Amino acid sequence: MQWIEITITTTEDASDAICEMLSQIGADGIAVSDPYEIARIIEDPDSLAYADEGYIESLGSDVTVKAYFAEFDDGVRLGPKNEEYVDPNGVGMIYGNIADKTMPAKNALKLIEDKLAEIGQFLPVGRGLTGHRYVQDKDWENEWKKDYTSFEISDRVLICPSWEEAEVKEGQIVVKLDPGSAFGTGTHETTSMCAEILDKLIKPEDKILDLGTGSGILAIICDKLGAGHVEAVDIDRLAVDVAEDNCRNNDCADIDCYTGELKDAKNSDYTLIVANIIADIIAAIAPDVPARLAPGGKFVCSGIINTKKDKVEAALAAAGFTILEKHEKNDWMAYICTLEN
């Protein structure tokens, strides 16, 4: 067996979708080098990070995603790592499942190029697949870790990989999360905006639904910030499995993780529903959210590219929501909404 490292040169907007696609087709590890995130950390006045003059400019504008697949004598290993997720029809999987377990390397590369083209229909993927190479076991073991380190996602929340012991400030909570799952680790603007909002909103009496939970990061943040009851739901069974593992790893086993959509939510009196998904889905579900909120409850939605903000704002208004706050980072929007009286 050997490891094949596949390099994709993309944009910040598309990097999360590409990571999720790679995970779903069977990547054993994923590493992301995002110059925008590095720049934000260095330029943060509260950060202790330092860089020589000109370093940030030298990073360029491309986001590099590296995915690692195991190659055996009969080909590159693809497909879910658990038989529970094998579904030739791709039901519940955003980018479709892969039924074949192995295929020649050139076919695997072609598959990835095809998947990138699909993503390119709604997000700018940049240059796409730019190369591949073979790496030794020991090289891969450390390669995927070196670009991911602790960072503050909000005033009180520190995201930390499992292999690192971070310095924790007084009053901070730590969320242990590794990048390999590709269902969201907090580095994207949409997730960080949600975290910042939750940091200010969460109260002990809150009953929260994290809709489209992915890695479970937002549900875990809610739980650690003291919310009384937290549910995490996702249409993807693999995401729910990842979220459950992350909840256990963070001593948040009381979070109720389950597979489903908004219609499958277990309660109709949530004080807060958070949805970090995509604009079209937020617009589509907006009419159904009010029936799930308690009086005075809030709806926090993110994952909205600014070119679709008018569509989302119109859908929220039609559903009876008033937007209390608008948050923006780069090209992404997040809203705090409540129902009109």
Results as ranks from 00 to 15, higher is better:
Gln2Lys: 15
Thr11Pro: 02
Thr11Glu: 02
Asp13Arg: 09
Asp16Thr: 06
Leu22Thr: 12
Gln24Thr: 13
Ile30His: 08
Val32Lys: 03
Glu37Ser: 13
Ile38Thr: 13
Ala39Ile: 05
Ile41Thr: 14
Ile41Ala: 11
Glu43Tyr: 13
Tyr55Met: 09
Val65Ser: 06
Val65Ala: 02
Lys66Glu: 08
Asp73Phe: 14
Leu78Ser: 09
Asn82Asp: 14
Asp87His: 08
Gly92Leu: 06
Met93Asn: 14
Gly96Cys: 05
Gly96Trp: 00
Met103Ala: 11
Asp114Gly: 03
Ile119Asn: 07
Gly120Ser: 05
Gly126Met: 02
Thr130Ile: 09
Tyr134Gln: 10
Trp140Val: 15
Ser150His: 07
Phe151Val: 06
Asp155Met: 05
Val157Asp: 02
Leu158Tyr: 06
Ser162Leu: 09
Trp163Ala: 01
Val168Met: 03
Gln172Lys: 06
Pro179Tyr: 04
Ala182Leu: 01
Glu189Thr: 09
Lys200Val: 08
Gly216Thr: 04
Gly228Phe: 05
His229Pro: 11
Glu231Asp: 11
Arg237Lys: 15
Arg237Met: 15
Arg237Gln: 15
Arg248Met: 12
Cys257Asn: 07
Ala265Asn: 04
Leu293Asp: 00
Pro295Ile: 03
Phe299Met: 06
Cys301Gln: 02
Thr307Phe: 12
Asp310Leu: 09
Ala317Arg: 11
Ala317Lys: 14
Leu324Trp: 06
Asp331Arg: 13
Leu339Cys: 07
